[in-house]
Design a protein around this nucleic acid. Structure first.
Length: 528
RNA sequence: GUCCCAAUAGCUCAGCAGGAUAGAGCACUUGAUUCCUAAUCAAGAGGUCGUGAGUUCGAAUCUCGCUUGGGACACCA
C-alpha cells in the first residue's frame, strides 16, 4: 500500500517523502509532513504548500480524501482500493504479506555451551532468533539458522569432572575437594545417575574416565538443549561443532600469519586487533600451544564467510559485547567484508513472581530454567513477552501476568479476538467463499478504519524486520485486537444488512492476526 | 578508569532516520449484558519525558556535559 502511495506522490513532489501514521486514524490512513521540509526550498509557508498539493492530489482516484491540516497532508484510501486488496489477500492467505527479497542470510543464535540446560536468558535470544528467521523467510530471504556448539574447550572437561565428583560424593560418600568452577544444579546429579546406570558405578573409581564422561555428558546436554528448544517450537538448520572446525586451524593460522594479522610475543600468538578498533591485542594461541576461545570463533567465521552469504547475523548475549570488535577485526584480516556481519545483543532478563526477583548464574546453579518457565506460562506467552520488548534493553516481567485469562494477558486478548471472528462464522453459517465477493462500499468510518488497519500487516512486518524491532509486530497485533473487540461491541453483525460486508472485513482482521502470530511462532486459536 | 544499555503515568513498557493534544496494558474510579463468548467495551483520573545546555520554524526523539541504575572489560568459554 505504502509503495503505491509513494509512487503517486512522487509524480508531484521531488525528493524523499516520509509517509507516517497519523496521530489519530480518523485524520486519515497515511500522512506526510512533507510540506514542512519543502517550506524552506520554496520559501512559502507549509500551510500554503500543503493546501496546493492537496488540490492536485485530489484528482488521484486511489484517494477518497486528501486534507491539509496545519501543514500536514492526510490521505484516505478509496474503499474500492482497500476492497480489492482485501479480496486478494483472503484468496491468497499463504502469500499475504510476503516479500520479494532474495538475499541469503546466515543467522546464528543461542549457541549456548552444551554444559547444562538452557536458562531464561538463552530463551530470549532463541525466541528472537527463531522469530527473525520466520519473518525473514516470509519476506523472501533465504535464511539458514545455525547453532555454534562450543564442544572443544575446558568447560566440557569441567562438565565431566563435575559429574565424576558428584558421583564420588553421592555413591561413595567421599570427601571431595571441589574446584571453584564446577557445575552445580540437580542436572549434574541426574547425569551422574544416568552414567552409573549406563557404564556401571566402577567408572567413577578411576579418574582417567573423566574425559570419556565429558564427551558423553556433552552429547547428553546437547540433546537436552535441543529438547528445550523444541518445547518452544525452535529447530535449527545446522549445528556447527567447534571441535570439528579445529581441523582447519592450521590453514587459517597460516593465512592469518601471511596477512600480518598475528604476531609472536612472549611465546604466544597475538591477534593484532588494535589495528581495527579493538582496545587491545588478543591472544589466540597460548604458550602451551593451546588455542583460545577466540581462535575457535575465528575459524568459525572464516567458515561462515566461505559459505558466501549476503549477510551474517549473530544474536549474542549482552555479556559478549566486548567481543564484537575482535571478531570483526579477524574477519577483516581474513580478507572478508566485516560489514556483512551484524551482531544483535540480547540483554538480561529478570523474572518476577509475586515481586520476588531472581538472579541468574549458569555456574552457580541458581538460575531459572527455560523449561520451567515454559511449563509455567507456555510457549506462546513466553514468545510474546520476549518479542514485545526491544531486545537490547533489560527486561523484567512477572510470570503471573501471563497466566491470567483476561485482557491483562495480551496473548489471551489477541487470541480471543481471533476466536470471536471464527465464532461469528459458525453462528452465521457462512463460509469465506460466500462473502468473498461482497463489495465493500459505503462503509462507516469504524468499518473502514478496521479494514484499513487489518491490511497494514505487510508494512508492519517489513518495518519490524528491517529495524530488527519485532515489538512493532506484537504492538500491532495488540492494537488490531483492540480494534476488533471494539467493533464487535459496537456493531451487531449477524442477521443485519451489513452482515456480509462486516464478515469480510473481520476476515481480513483475522487473517492478519493469524499470519502475524504465525510469524512469531504462535498458532492462533479458533476457539477459547 | 574505559566501553555498552538504560532513565517517559503508582507499576511494566511503547513512542526516538525531529513534527499535530506524549501512548498502551496493569492498578484505581464510574458506567454498559432481554441481543453474535461482559473472557469484552466505553468514560474518568493519572506526566515539568532524570538533569543542564546546544542545534532550529519545532526536541521525549539529535549533540555535549552531569546524576542515578544494570552489565561488560581473561591467556574462561
Amino acid at each position: 500500500m505504502k509503495k503505491k502511495i509513494l509512487n503517486v506522490l512522487n509524480e508531484y513532489i521531488d525528493g524523499e517523502i516520509v509517509l507516517e501514521k497519523p496521530k489519530d486514524i480518523n485524520f486519515g490512513h497515511f500522512a506526510t509532513p512533507v510540506a514542512f521540509s519543502l517550506a524552506k526550498k520554496l520559501r512559502k509557508s507549509p500551510v500554503i504548500i500543503a493546501k496546493e498539493l492537496c488540490e492536485k492530489l485530489l484528482k488521484e482516484d486511489i484517494f477518497s480524501s486528501v486534507e491539509a491540516v496545519k501543514g500536514y497532508i492526510n490521505f484516505k484510501l478509496e474503499n474500492e482500493f482497500l476492497d480489492k486488496f482485501a479480496t486478494w489477500s483472503l484468496q491468497n492467505e499463504n502469500d499475504f504479506a510476503k516479500g520479494s527479497n532474495n538475499k541469503k542470510i546466515l543467522l546464528e543464535y543461542v549457541s549456548a555451551n552444551p554444559t547444562g540446560p538452557l536458562h531464561i536468558g538463552h530463551a530470549r535470544g532463541a525466541i528472537l532468533g527463531d522469530s527473525l528467521c520466520k519473518i525473514a523467510r516470509h519476506l523472501g530471504y533465504e535464511v539458514t539458522s545455525e547453532y555454534y556448539v562450543n564442544d572443544a574447550g575446558n568447560q566440557i572437561y569441567l562438565l565431566g569432572l563435575s559429574v565424576f565428583l558428584n558421583a564420588q560424593d553421592n555413591f561413595f560418600d567421599m570427601d571431595i575437594d571441589w574446584p571453584d568452577e564446577y557445575y552445580r544444579g540437580s542436572y549434574i546429579n541426574d547425569l551422574a545417575c544416568e552414567a552409573r546406570d549406563n557404564f556401571g558405578v566402577d567408572i567413577f573409581t578411576d579418574n582417567t574416565n573423566v574425559k570419556l564422561l565429558s564427551d558423553w555428558a556433552k552429547d547428553k546436554m546437547l540433546e537436552l538443549i535441543k529438547s528445550n528448544l523444541k518445547e518452544c517450537g525452535i529447530e535449527f538448520d545446522s549445528f556447527v561443532s567447534e571441535k570439528k572446525l579445529y581441523e582447519k586451524w592450521d590453514e587459517v593460522f597460516d593465512r592469518l600469519k601471511r596477512n600480518g594479522a598475528i604476531y609472536e610475543k612472549d611465546g604466544k600468538w597475538w591477534l593484532n586487533s588494535t589495528k581495527y578498533n579493538d582496545e587491545k591485542d588478543r591472544v589466540v594461541v597460548r604458550e602451551d600451544k593451546r588455542a583460545t576461545y577466540l581462535a575457535g570463533d575465528i575459524i568459525y567465521h572464516d567458515d561462515k564467510f566461505k559459505r558466501e552469504y549476503d549477510e551474517y547475523i549473530n544474536i549474542w548475549g549482552a555479556d559478549h559485547h566486548g567481543y564484537i570488535e575482535r571478531v570483526r577485526a579477524a574477519i577483516k584480516f581474513l580478507g572478508y567484508d566485516e560489514n556483512k556481519l551484524e551482531v544483535i545483543l540480547s540483554q538480561m532478563v529478570s523474572l518476577l513472581k509475586a515481586g520476588e526477583p531472581y538472579k541468574m548464574s549458569k555456574r552457580a546453579g541458581n538460575f531459572i530454567l527455560m523449561s520451567d518457565v515454559l511449563e509455567d506460562i507456555g510457549s506462546d506467552a513466553l514468545r510474546f513477552v520476549f518479542l514485545s520488548k526491544k531486545s537490547d534493553t533489560h527486561l523484567e516481567f512477572d510470570v503471573d501476568m501471563f497466566k491470567a485469562n483476561d485482557s491483562s494477558n495480551p496473548i489471551y486478548y489477541i487470541n480471543y479476538a481471533h476466536a470471536r471472528i471464527n465464532q461469528l462464522f459458525e453462528k452465521s453459517n457462512k463460509k469465506l467463499k460466500d462473502i468473498l465477493n461482497v463489495k465493500l462500499d459505503n462503509l462507516n468510518s469504524d468499518a473502514e478504519n478496521l479494514l484499513f488497519y487489518s491490511l497494514l500487516l505487510p508494512e508492519v512486518i517489513e518495518d519490524a524486520f528491517k529495524q530488527r524491532a519485532l515489538q512493532k509486530l506484537t504492538e500491532y497485533l495488540k492494537i488490531l485486537a483492540s480494534f476488533i473487540h471494539r467493533f464487535y461491541n459496537e456493531y451487531r453483525i449477524i442477521a443485519t444488512e451489513e452482515e456480509d460486508k462486516y464478515l469480510k472485513i473481520l476476515s481480513t482482521s483475522a487473517l492478519s492476526i493469524r499470519v502475524g502470530l504465525k510469524l512469531i511462532g504462535i498458532q492462533a486459536k479458533y476457539k477459547m
